[in-house]
């Protein structure tokens, strides 16, 4: 089937890609903000229905995250600046753990008004986040590296021609 001719020139095509790129990240961070707002702002009497209330946002957020993750891994892409190694993975996991700890301390303290409980919950949540993030990053970094090696292999016809 013949492809329909684009109405855009090269510059407009790049602008559109940039707009779509920004839109994707607005959707990503917006969904995360909405999920967190629902967790914080849902009144106590509706709290038992919270999983059902945020199902839609959670599904879209997970689909978006999984698509971004798998598409990058398939193409052997990790990050513009960071290398997929243990040091950066640990640093990223600690940052994620720190963010979760801050959120949990504030959330638990304003909900239960007990600092020790808030610190305890935050500590456990942060530890679990660090471990899970580090494991996920280690596995995905390994898969990405393997894919990079596979994509960088010289194709047979190119080697034979020499």
């Amino acid at each position: 089937m013949k492809q329909k001719k684009s109405n855009l020139d090269e510059m407009q095509e790049q602008k559109l890609l940039k707009i779509e790129h920004n839109g994707c990240w607005i959707a990503f961070w917006g969904l995360l903000a909405v999920i967190l707002a629902q967790v914080v702002l849902t009144p106590d009497e509706l709290r038992e229905h919270l999983p059902r209330i945020m199902t839609g946002e959670w599904i879209v957020f997970m689909v978006l995250s999984l698509y971004l993750g798998f598409a990058c891994m398939k193409n052997g892409i990790w990050d513009r600046k960071l290398k997929p190694n243990a040091k950066t993975n640990l640093l990223a996991s600690l940052l994620a753990g720190g963010a979760v700890a801050v959120f949990q301390v504030l959330y638990s303290y304003f909900r239960f008004h007990r600092l020790v409980v808030a610190l305890g919950v935050a500590g456990v949540s942060a530890l679990i986040t660090v471990i899970l993030c580090f494991l996920t990053l280690t596995v995905t970094a390994r898969v990405t590296k393997k894919q990079q090696e596979k994509l960088e292999e010289e194709p047979k016809d190119s080697a034979e021609e020499q």
Binding site: E152, E154, P155, S158, E161, Q162
Partner: peptide, 9 residues
């Protein structure tokens, strides 16, 4: 590239 005996890599 082939003339220069150069691989893609």
């Amino acid at each position: 590239r082939i003339e220069l005996e150069m691989s893609q890599t």
